[in-house]
Amino acid sequence: MNGYNFAYLDEQTKRMIRRALLKAVAIPGHQVPFGSREMPLPYGWGTGGIQVTASVLGAGDTLKVIDQGADDTTNAVSIRRFFARTAGVATTTDTNDATIIQTRHRIPEKALREDQIIVYQVPQPEPLSKLEPSRAETRRMHALAEYGSMHVRLYEDITRFGHIAISYDYPVMVNHRYLMAPSPIPAFDNPKMHMMPALQLFGAGREKRIYAIPPYTDVRSLDFDDHPFRTTRAPQCCALCGADDSYLDEVVTDDQGGRMFVCSDTDHCETRQAEGHTGTGEPVVKEATAAGSEARGGEQA
């Protein structure tokens, strides 16, 4: 790639982003504005994550990029290729081998290590945005830790549905101080953020915000004492590797209601298959009523 700096961004821009990252790490969960640049991928498609990765990437790093948990989805392929071309770094699909993992909407099933960094692509960094569209007002609310309206929203869910109805981008309290949007990962993944050994960085390019969770930080999903946070996953086992505790994708196999459930984390699934685990491989025919969706799930500490 002629004429482009390592990882596309010029050095001043990377320095600016790293300064924002340092501030973010120093104040866990707090959104730091940064001068997001126009990138060759559109806003909303991971430009924030790409800028964060570009700023922390070094020649010796090994990069993994996933979207919806899979390495081979079109957007993950596109981003991985982008870094291969502009930085020449080694890339991998193996979570174990990666030093930097850029992700859209999932946390890998395998627990991450202290020497790894996970970079999340964030569409909407403001957890209060659906309750209060004015950014000036939400800034004040964060500064004053005025999060009552979020609890009112959860209260209303319980009143209307009998339980909290947020299934992804479930708001969390970071380090007992800041309300944070974890990005649209399924609620199933929220417990992984708590006391994670890896550094977690979050980039929102269009909204121009960066935030971070340093390693071993307290992260709790909001709930009520008598309606504690619960995770949700499809009750089936993976049809390919038999896993009964990973997050599953639902694949429609025919138009008679035939379904197959497979691990969303493709690397996790392939690793298990290589180790000899198998699933039935048979599609499941869905019954008329939707099966219960709260079978297994973590509880928070």
């Binding site: 919806q68 899979a70 994708d249 639902e250 694949v251 429609v252 196999t253 025919d254 138009d255 969303s264």
Partner: peptide, 8 residues
Amino acid sequence: SAVYKDLP
């Protein structure tokens, strides 16, 4: 489709 990974 953005709601299914794969479909007929």
